[in-house]
Every structure is written in C-alpha cells, then in structure tokens.
Simulated assay, not measured.
Amino acid sequence: MRARISTRFADSRAADLSLAYGLSPLPALGTHQVTLDGVTLELRVLGASHQVVIGDWSETVACLPDRPGALPATSTEVVGDYTARFEARCDRPADFAATVSRIVADCEADGHSLVAEFPGSPLAVTALSARSTAAGVCWETWHAYPQAGELVWTSSVVSPL
C-alpha cells in the first residue's frame, strides 16, 4: 500500500532515531493493518519514523524527545509477552535513487507493506514490510533521508514467549 503524505517528515537525521518498546500508539500519518498467521499488526508511519503495534505491544523507531538518538546495531529483549530481536544499520548507497526506487517498487507489490512518500522528493520515503516466520512475525523498515543520502534499515522478529 502506498500513501502520499502531505506533511513534511519530522525526523531530520538518521543519527537522531532511537528505539522504544511499549509506547502507546502515536499520531500516525499513514497506517496499514495486516494479519499474518493469526497475528494482527498495525504498520504506522510517523514522520520519517515508524511504529508497529501488535495488540498492546509496540515497537517505535523515531526521534523521541526523551531518548538519545542512536539505534542499536543489534538488540534482543523480552518485552511483555514477546521476545523482540532488532537489527539496524545506516547506509549511504552509491546509487541512492535506484536503491530507494527498488525498495518502493518491492513494497508496493506486497500487500503486507506500507510505503509513505513525503512532499519535496519522491526519495523521501518510509517503508515497512511484514511477513511471518517460523519464529513469529517480522518486519523490515527503510527510512530514506535524501538530503543526506542516508538509508536506515531495520529488521525485527517478534516471538511469543
């Protein structure tokens, strides 16, 4: 699913993103609900950041005023009734436009994905793509910062305890 957002994205730098679990749903600019193997996820775009909600559990990657920036490269935490494995990296692809265009095309072709395009550049996007695995549910996200040529990728696997 593709959403064209009329609001400029709020996050300005990849280095300002932080990870939080358990936040209440934040105001979203775009949402898409998917069900995978009986688990319902709400994919949410917040500025140039994201939130995934499963029942009363959530993962938020955003510039949060009460948290320092810097995503962990890897993290495994027990949060509520789930084990959450998280990975993140920030790349500067040599062909930023082609990389972002491929991600957008792949996500648009997948009914379990959400792509939000922000005004000012077709490369200012946040994309989320969910799927099920033997371990539980998982999703990948991409946060594109065209002004810096940065692409933040995250991957999360959430398993019930």
Rank of each mutant, 00 (worst) to 15 (best):
R2S: 13
R2A: 10
A3I: 06
I5S: 00
I5H: 02
T7C: 02
A10Q: 03
L17A: 04
A20L: 14
L23T: 04
L23W: 10
S24W: 04
P25H: 07
L26E: 12
L26Y: 11
A28I: 07
A28N: 12
T31D: 14
T31A: 04
H32E: 10
H32M: 08
D37V: 04
G38T: 09
T40M: 08
L41H: 02
L41N: 07
L41E: 12
E42T: 15
E42A: 04
E42Q: 13
L43M: 11
V45E: 02
L46Q: 08
A48Y: 02
A48M: 09
S49Q: 07
H50I: 07
H50Q: 00
V53S: 02
G55V: 07
D56H: 00
D56F: 00
W57A: 09
S58V: 05
S58Y: 06
S58T: 08
S58P: 15
V61E: 06
A62F: 14
L64Q: 15
L64K: 07
L64V: 10
D66E: 15
R67K: 14
P68V: 08
A73H: 07
A73W: 05
A73E: 15
T76E: 14
E77Q: 12
V78C: 02
D81L: 00
A84D: 09
A84T: 03
R85T: 14
E87M: 02
R89M: 14
R89S: 09
D91N: 11
P93M: 09
F96Y: 08
T99W: 03
V100D: 12
V100T: 12
V100I: 11
S101L: 13
R102T: 13
R102M: 06
D106F: 09
E108R: 10
E108N: 11
D110F: 11
D110T: 09
G111V: 05
S113L: 03
L114A: 07
L114E: 01
V115D: 13
A116W: 01
P119Q: 13
P119I: 14
P122L: 09
P122Y: 00
L123K: 02
A124S: 03
A124W: 00
V125H: 04
V125K: 05
T126C: 04
A127V: 05
L128T: 11
S129C: 00
A130W: 01
A130Y: 08
S132H: 12
S132W: 08
A134T: 13
A135G: 01
V137R: 05
C138Q: 13
C138K: 05
W139T: 07
W139E: 08
E140C: 06
E140K: 08
T141Q: 12
T141L: 12
W142E: 01
H143Y: 03
A144L: 01
Y145I: 07
Y145W: 06
P146Q: 01
P146E: 11
G149I: 00
E150D: 15
E150H: 08
W153D: 00
T154N: 10
S155H: 13
S156W: 14
V158L: 07
V158S: 00
S159Q: 14
L161K: 08
L161N: 00
